Simulated assay, not measured.
Amino acid sequence: MVNVDKQNKKNKKEDTDLVDKLVGINRVAKVVKGGRRFGFAAIVVVGDLRGKVGYGTGKAKEVPEAIKKATDDAKKNMVKVPMKEGRTLHHDMKGHYGAGRVVLRSAPSGTGIIAGGPMRAVFETLGVQDVVAKSIGTSNPHNMIKATFDAFKSMYSPRNVANKRGKKVAEIFGNESKEINQAAKVE
C-alpha cells in the first residue's frame, strides 16, 4: 500500500511539470435514424519545457473529455529530444508523414520560434527558443505533428554520435585533426 502511494505522488509531481497545448478540435457527425450524433476529436501536445515532448489524440462525445483523453495519450507517448545549449536544435533535419513534409533548422540566439500552427505548439512545449521550421505539403495538423516527430527521430547530439563511434566529441567535430595539421605545417 505504501509503495502505491509513493508511486502516485511521483506521478503527480511529474504531471505538474508538464505543459499542454491544444492544437485542434474536430467536430464529427454520425448520421443515424433520428438525426445526427456529434462527437469531438482533439489533438494535444504535452512537454516539460526541458527537452521532452509528446502528442496524443482523443475522441469523445464532449469536448473536455476528448481533451483529457488526448492529454493522457500524449503523456504516454513522450520522447526525449537533445537540444543545443538548451535553446535550439543540434542540426538541420527533415521529416515526413503521409503528405506532410517539414524542414527544421537550428537558429542563432535571438531568432525565436519561426514556425506555423501545430509545429509552434510542439517547439513551445519542448522548450526550444530559437528554431526555423517550414511545412511543405499538407496543412493537416495531425500529419504536420507526426512529420515533426519523424524529424526528431533523426536528431542526434554530438555526444550520442561520439559514443556510438567510440570517439571523443572533439574528434567528431574534427578539432583535433585541424590542430594536428596546423602543427605539421609549422614544423
Rank of each mutant, 00 (worst) to 15 (best):
V81M: 07
G58F: 05
E176V: 14
V122G: 13
T138C: 03
K164D: 07
I172N: 11
R159T: 03
P108Q: 03
S157A: 08
K52G: 02
P118C: 04
G116I: 05
E171H: 04
R159C: 00
V63H: 11
S109H: 13
G112I: 03
K167P: 00
L22A: 05
N181T: 01
G127V: 07
G95F: 06
V131P: 15
I136Q: 11
V28I: 14
T71F: 00
L126W: 13
I114T: 11
A115Y: 14
A74W: 06
H142S: 08
K146S: 03
K80F: 02
D150A: 12
G116D: 03
K168F: 05
G174M: 01
A183P: 01
S106C: 09
A170M: 01
L89R: 08
K52A: 02
N160C: 00
D15G: 00
L126T: 09
V81R: 15
M93N: 07
V44G: 06
T148M: 12
V28H: 12
N181L: 09
G112Q: 06
A41W: 06
V103C: 05
H90G: 06
G112C: 03
T57M: 15
V132H: 15
K10L: 10
Y97D: 02
F40C: 05
K33S: 12
I43P: 01
T71P: 06
K185H: 03
P158Y: 08
P108R: 04
N140R: 13
K68C: 01
G56K: 04
K80C: 00
A107W: 11
V128P: 15
V161P: 09
G117C: 06
K75M: 00
S106V: 00
G166M: 03
K61G: 13
Q129S: 07
L89C: 08
K153H: 10
S106H: 15
D92Y: 01
K76C: 01
R27K: 14
A183W: 07
I180L: 09
G100E: 05
N175G: 00
N8R: 15
I136W: 07
L18Q: 06
N175R: 12
A121T: 14
S106N: 14
K33N: 12
N140A: 09
P118H: 02
N175T: 11
A162K: 09
S109F: 11
A70G: 03
T71Q: 02
A151I: 08
K164M: 01
R50C: 05
K33A: 08
K94G: 01
V31E: 06
K68I: 07
M93W: 04
K10E: 13
I25E: 14
G95H: 09
P64I: 02
N143S: 10
